[in-house]
Every structure is written in structure tokens, then in C-alpha cells.
Amino acid sequence: MDLPTAFAEHLFRDRRRSSHTVRAYRGAAERLVVFLRRHWGGPVDRATLAAVSQADLRAFLAARRGDGLGNASAARELSAVRSFLGFVAGGDAVPRLKGPRVKKGVPRPVSPDEAVALAEEVADAAREQWIGARDWAVLLLLYGAGLRIGEAMALTGGVLPLGETMAVTGKRAKTRIVPLLPQVREAIEGYVALCPYPVARDEPLFRGARGGPLSPALIRRAVQGARGRLGLGSRTTPHALRHSFATHLLGRGADLRQLQELLGHASLSSTQIYTAVDAAHLLDVYRNAHPRA
């Protein structure tokens, strides 16, 4: 059995990591092995991996950044490969290397790359597999469907079985229909399959560790810890994922009326704030890309 596969089995069987974390960490381990094979010009085995240096890791991260990897995902990649090297070394010291940091400045929407990295980091830090699957599902709902965190917490087992859309009750008891991406449906269904508590139609969908309703404060605290590890700014909150959902849709051509319905805003003026956010993003693109900017 090759080492990345053995590492993946260890994560799933011994550390009870969620399937999405296992896939992500296995992928990072495989990319490291392929890179080192080219970098060193020879075979990569347990003995050679034990000799990986800071310079080797730095070269690997530089190559991954050259592939277009953002800061948050680069930090996740570093965390994954260090975990892999620790597994291979059997507890011996692993080279330490500071992950990339995000520059402080004017707040900007969380990028798709950062949103996924944040959700993965939160899920990976959970102490039990089903809790990691739960947190992954919650954060994908905020980013992938634009829910407020309170709306996600208010969902009950009545939304099951999932279809292509979901009815969500928002402010002032107003109900709206939101589309569910396949990845979001898969995340929720994965959580339900692992949840140790029965999900009745009139009971909360998302449960705390002792079976009661999940508190939004727990999600906020988990996000706070994850953003620190990934080098994301203090404005990277659960609600920022909803803002990013709106901004990215607007940037892809959604009009304000469509966005108003998806977000559950009572007034169009509430939705118009996203035009300014998107303009700021476009200005960044212009400044970085225009030869005379």
C-alpha cells in the first residue's frame, strides 16, 4: 500500500476524520510525493520523506502557489502535508514552516478558495467525526445557499429528504425557497448519516454534542479559531460567508431582484449594498491587472 493511501486509512479509521477531510489530506499527500519525485529526481519512500527539510516544504508551497492556490488553501495544504509527514515519521520531529498570511487592509468578501478552506479547517478541528460533518454542512449552507446562521440553526428534520431546493424561514417569519448545490446536499446528507441522534421532522436538524439544538456561538467560535490558523482577517465570520455568496452571485451576473429573493431581504435597498462590495472587488482586479493602473 502506498503511503498516501495508508495515511488516508489512518485518518479515517484511527482519527475518525470526515470523508471530505480524508480526501483533502490524501490529495495533499499525493501532490507532495509527486512534487518531491520531480524535485529530487528520484524515488520517494518512507526514508526519504523523513529527510524532508524546510526548504523542500517551501519549494512545494511555492509550486502550489504557482498553480493558483490562495493563501487560505496554501495554509491548509501545509497543515495537511505536515500531518502526513508526522504520520510517516511515526512521531519524530517534522520541519516547521510558517504558513502564508493574508495582508490586512480594506475588508473584502471571502473568496471561494478561502470559504472552502475555512469550512475544511473547522471540520478537521472537530473532536468527533459527526461533529466535523455537521460543521462542514452548516458552513456550506451559509456560503453555498446564502443562509443566515440563525436560519440554518432553525432548520428541522422536516427539510428531509433533500431535493434541489429548500424552504427557509427568515426574518419576520418570511419563507423563501433557496436552491441547493449538489455539494451542499451531499454535506447535509453526510452529516445526517453520521449524527448519533434521530433527526425527527419537528426536531432541530443540527444538534449539539449532547443532542440539544446547536448553538450559533459554537460555530462562531470554531470559525474564529480556524481563521486564525489560516491567516484570515477578523471579519471572516459565519455571516461573511453569506455576504460572499451574494457578492459572488452578483459578480456572475445575478440581478438585484434575484439576489433579494435568494437572501430574503424585505427591501431592495438592503440588497444594494452588494453593488458597492462588488465594485470594490472589480477595482482590485483592475488595479492588479491593468498595465497602466
Rank of each mutant, 00 (worst) to 15 (best):
G90R: 04
F87Y: 13
K98R: 14
R108N: 06
R46P: 12
A51S: 15
V106A: 14
V88T: 02
D92G: 14
G41V: 02
S111Y: 08
A115M: 06
P107A: 05
R37A: 12
G105A: 04
V52C: 03
A59Q: 10
R76M: 11
D56W: 05
L61G: 01
V52Y: 07
F35C: 01
P100T: 01
R108W: 04
V102T: 15
L97P: 00
G68Q: 05
G68D: 02
V102W: 12
L57Q: 05
R46A: 15
S73L: 06
R76C: 15
R58D: 14
L61T: 02
G86Y: 01
F87H: 01
W40T: 03
A75Y: 06
G105F: 03
L61Q: 04
L57R: 04
V94Y: 03
R108D: 08
G70R: 12
P107L: 07
R101L: 09
D92T: 09
Q54M: 11
R82W: 00
D45M: 04
A50V: 04
R101P: 03
S73A: 15
T48N: 07
L78C: 01
K98G: 13
G90P: 07
A50G: 15
G86K: 10
G86Q: 09
L69V: 13
R108E: 11
K104Q: 14
V106K: 11
W40N: 06
P107H: 08
A80N: 01
A80M: 02
D67P: 05
P43I: 08
A50C: 11
G90I: 02
L49A: 06
L78Q: 00
F35L: 06
D92C: 14
D45C: 07
A51E: 14
E114Q: 11
F87C: 01
A59P: 08
P95L: 00
A89N: 12
K104L: 11
A89F: 09
A63E: 13
R37L: 08
A80Y: 00
S79A: 15
D56Q: 06
A50D: 13
K98A: 15
V102D: 15
L97H: 02
A59Y: 04
G41R: 09
P95I: 00
G99F: 01
A63N: 09
S53H: 03
S53D: 12
G91P: 05
A55R: 14
R46K: 14
A59T: 08
V106F: 14
K103P: 15
S79K: 04
L69Q: 10
R58K: 11
S83H: 13
A75R: 08
E77V: 13
F60H: 10
V106C: 10
A59H: 07
A62Y: 07
P100L: 00
Q54P: 05
G90L: 02
A51Y: 08
